[in-house]
Design a protein around this nucleic acid. Sequence first.
DNA 1: GAGCTTTCCATGGCAATGTGATGCCATAGA
DNA 2: TCTATGGCATCACATTGCCATGGAAAGCTC
Lengths: 209, 209
Amino acid sequence: MRTQLLERAARMLREREPITLRSLVAGTGVSTMAVYTYFGGMDGVWRALRQEGFTRLAARLEALVVPADPVEDLVAGAAAYVVNALEHPDLYRVMFDATVDLEDLEAAEATLGHLERAARRCRDGGRIAEDADPDRLATEVWTVCHGIVSLVVSRVASRRTLASGIPLLAAVITAAGDDPAACRRSVEAGWAALRPPQGSTATASTSTR
Amino acid sequence: MRTQLLERAARMLREREPITLRSLVAGTGVSTMAVYTYFGGMDGVWRALRQEGFTRLAARLEALVVPADPVEDLVAGAAAYVVNALEHPDLYRVMFDATVDLEDLEAAEATLGHLERAARRCRDGGRIAEDADPDRLATEVWTVCHGIVSLVVSRVASRRTLASGIPLLAAVITAAGDDPAACRRSVEAGWAALRPPQGSTATASTSTR
DNA sequence: GAGCTTTCCATGGCAATGTGATGCCATAGA
DNA sequence: TCTATGGCATCACATTGCCATGGAAAGCTC
């Protein structure tokens, strides 16, 4: 029942229907009090949606095949973050709209953890300086991605702004010590996941989901 | 009357009181319909608040004394952007929360315009490559700042994350062609506006406002 | 100045919202 | 079979944004 309501809420969010206590239970044969039993109120519904969003994002990151090139790995994680946000823009907004609380933060940490692991690989593989802080690099990458995608999702910046991810990430990783030319190549490879939504039309119908 | 209501709304937002049609007019001696006359509804109030936020930001940027060093100028604009957001976090959230519409975009453009002017100065002054695109650099700087401040304001990242502005901006501007050492110096100088909230306690009481 | 129009906004009510008190009842444990 | 626990349906409430109505003031024409 709980998951049924949650999925229904996620679907309504995706389809841009207003999520209201009554509209949420309408047609499910269940009454409004059920929402209070399972979520403790509408706030709880939004919180659950937020967590669901982070969980889905973490799953997506986990499902990535890790390339041999650690820098490409790092950027691929960043790209997956961006793609996820673009595919579920409303969910993304919910995830960062309100002032998040601590349990949400844990889920967010998981996301950051993926990037940190890749950043450590970069250092261990000698791609960035030995004394560079991988966690800091991961945070910087995350910050950049969040900035880009946040502006695009809220339509302040056009979708073309996504392309700036390449020079930005290249600048950040190069600053951490990577060789400029190699870095550029790795970044472009890792960022490639962003290409399909711009170029191809069909052929992607057999993807996940 | 309109500005009185708008200022009242801004104050309520600042003081974290819920802004409601009735709470907005309560005590003003005016009725709810006045809000419809002046704003066309609560949506209009939020839109007006958004625009007010952009206007205030633009004024703040305009009031900056432009330093001789163009890179410092660029970064000072970025820092002012961040400081403004930190001083009025709720207003900042409103500015980017909803899907903004076109008239809001104009105001946002003004903000970007300030950075673009500074970026052009950087190119004309020979600080970045001649074939570098100043507008792109300005957008990148904006993106980075928005990413940082957005994470900090929504409490996803700690306030310490603000410090990453220096290496990030240095990386971005260096990538555009500036000399690394000089860039670092300019960025630190421009970013200095962020220092007070961390360090000093008094002595800043005679500042603006 | 009288009459007409227009603009502004106070009154009051409406539908929809989130919330919660009350109590029914199915299930499980004795 | 009796009972007790917990899930949830029913119903009522306060509050929300919105607006139809109408009154009052201001402007315009003659």
